Amino acid sequence: MFRTVIKTLQLLNSETGPWQLAFGASFGLILGLTPLLNLHNLLVLLLICLLRVNISFVLLFMGLSAGFAYLFDNQFHQLGYQLLNSPTLLPLWTDWYNDALLRWSRFNNTVVLGSLVASLLLFFPVAIVVRFAISQYRQRWQKKLEQTRFMQLLKASRWTEAFTKLGE
């Protein structure tokens, strides 16, 4: 956990663009909220590799949102159930289920569909909020935090140096 805090502070203080970090958080949200072994997550991983997204933030937010996913499984199930039982969408679900490739997507599973729709709806709001928070941190709090006694001790610590060398 100590190493994660150090890495996160290094990322926040780095030259990495705020949008790269923000979209990394949003992609991590999708990977964390949805069940991992699904076809749509392969597409998300492909987008992460193609776009300039910070992978450390993807992993950080994937872990954070996976912890919350279990709390909202019932809501994801209800959302997926409503979507799958919608009379207007029933032909779409039938066509997708009859397609061999799309059947692997497991869209007929209420939790998979509900969590994917919820994470897609949250994608841009999370990116905007995270980008705003990073900008505010860099403008207002970064210099103040670096001047605190805790950060000075952390920078001078041999443990911090050892942990950063391990991560390289």
Results as ranks from 00 to 15, higher is better:
135 S>I: 11
110 T>P: 01
137 Y>C: 11
12 L>K: 02
112 V>T: 06
95 D>H: 10
127 A>V: 06
78 Q>P: 00
13 N>I: 00
58 V>H: 06
96 W>F: 14
48 I>P: 08
121 L>I: 14
75 Q>N: 08
34 T>C: 14
83 L>C: 07
117 V>S: 04
37 L>D: 15
27 F>T: 05
108 N>L: 05
50 L>V: 15
29 L>F: 00
31 L>Q: 10
49 C>T: 13
81 Y>D: 14
123 F>W: 00
149 R>E: 04
89 L>T: 10
98 N>M: 08
58 V>D: 02
24 G>C: 09
163 F>T: 04
1 M>K: 03
40 H>D: 06
87 P>N: 09
28 G>M: 02
55 I>M: 04
4 T>Y: 06
39 L>S: 02
95 D>P: 00
62 M>C: 15
147 Q>W: 08
65 S>W: 00
42 L>G: 10
43 L>T: 00
125 P>G: 14
108 N>V: 04
131 R>F: 08
167 G>D: 14
50 L>S: 12
91 P>G: 07
10 Q>T: 08
146 E>H: 13
51 L>G: 10
49 C>K: 11
9 L>Q: 01
132 F>N: 11
105 S>R: 00
23 F>R: 03
83 L>S: 07
89 L>E: 11
132 F>A: 15
144 K>Q: 15
159 W>H: 05
84 L>A: 07
150 F>T: 13
3 R>Q: 03
121 L>M: 14
50 L>E: 10
113 L>M: 12
112 V>Q: 00
74 N>R: 09
72 F>N: 07
139 Q>H: 13
17 G>L: 09
29 L>R: 00
109 N>D: 15
153 L>T: 10
138 R>W: 10
25 A>M: 07
142 Q>H: 12
42 L>A: 13
70 Y>T: 07
126 V>T: 05
24 G>S: 09
18 P>L: 03
22 A>N: 01
26 S>F: 01
118 A>R: 04
88 T>D: 12
42 L>I: 10
77 H>G: 00
33 L>I: 01
13 N>H: 12
152 Q>W: 02
89 L>R: 09
107 F>E: 02
140 R>F: 12
124 F>M: 14
88 T>W: 15
44 V>N: 04
115 S>R: 01
151 M>Q: 07
3 R>S: 04
42 L>V: 09
110 T>E: 15
161 E>A: 14
139 Q>C: 08
31 L>Y: 03
79 L>P: 05
111 V>M: 00
14 S>N: 03
115 S>Q: 01
15 E>A: 12
51 L>R: 11
28 G>V: 02
34 T>V: 15
105 S>M: 10
95 D>L: 14
24 G>V: 05
147 Q>P: 02
44 V>M: 08
65 S>C: 13
91 P>S: 07
167 G>F: 08
121 L>E: 06
157 S>T: 07
57 F>H: 04
103 R>T: 06
154 L>M: 03
144 K>F: 08
135 S>R: 14
86 S>H: 14
102 L>Q: 02
57 F>N: 05
144 K>T: 12
107 F>Q: 01
34 T>A: 11
99 D>R: 07
19 W>H: 08
106 R>Q: 15
106 R>W: 07
